[in-house]
Design a protein around this nucleic acid. Sequence first.
DNA 1: TTGGGTGCAAAGGCTTTGCATGTGA
DNA 2: TCACATGCAAAGCCTTTGCACCCAA
Lengths: 155, 155
Amino acid sequence: MKLGEDMPDNQEQFKNLLKQNGLKVTTQRIAILEVLSCRPGEHLTAEEIYDLVKVKYPEIGLATVYRTIQMLSDLDLIDKLNLDDGYVRYEISRKNHDENGHHHHHLICLDCGNIYTFQDDLLETLETRIKETLGFEVVDHEVKLYGHCKNCREK
Amino acid sequence: MKLGEDMPDNQEQFKNLLKQNGLKVTTQRIAILEVLSCRPGEHLTAEEIYDLVKVKYPEIGLATVYRTIQMLSDLDLIDKLNLDDGYVRYEISRKNHDENGHHHHHLICLDCGNIYTFQDDLLETLETRIKETLGFEVVDHEVKLYGHCKNCREK
DNA sequence: TTGGGTGCAAAGGCTTTGCATGTGA
DNA sequence: TCACATGCAAAGCCTTTGCACCCAA
């Protein structure tokens, strides 16, 4: 996604979504979504989002960030990622680019901490098999793969 | 695993592991491991473990439970499971039954909250492919599948 | 105008830590 | 004996909540 190209569309969509849900379009909400939209693939904590929004909008409160994050999550506009380090992280949803509505997967480097993402439909087979054998119908999944990234392995 | 059958072995192994690591064998540590060993497949929070241990050992403190849990996790004797509900859950590790050292996967029912587990090596293929294409070497993974279980679907 | 939104500070809730006492080796 | 372990309570830390003020519609 390029800045100033898809972004305005994204914002319009967001505004409409708010209105459709009886929510108000506020400067704070727009600012928070913008921060996340400008950083696809980054996984920001609430505090990090707070600090980034404060650059352009110093009056914002941390509570507003938490409330907005929750709202964005409810609206499926952002994805949660929990790395068990005490922070919950968020990134703009890529659902638009993923027909089946599934989340992408994360590769987490144990050495440098970088997070890489990838799309894969391999789990489709698995989910079909689970439904047939266990009667469990999968509607969503979260996959985290831990290991050593290319850069760290070459060092 | 049956009570009074594999359990003593498990305990002996545990005691040796403690000694090997310069740690002391205490009543509390044995009691906590026992509670977890007797409940394979259950996913207990620290508080739940605390309550269960208190039945046989009422003097134990919650801090000891937290400290022991951390130790058991470091020794790879228990697995962590985070369902993002504010609690971290623990279960006795099944690593012994899993040659490659990988964790099993979790099926989480969105209706009743029950957690089912399954073993699968389908990810092997995926991990090989990831190594070939991205140069990322996977050493561990965590897979959570959310959906509707058989019981809930039949209702 | 007016009900939802915001900012600030206080409260919550799980987990960790400090410290004096206890105990396994 | 003595270093490690435990219990209790206090502190930490991320997140949520209460409330008076504010502002989008």
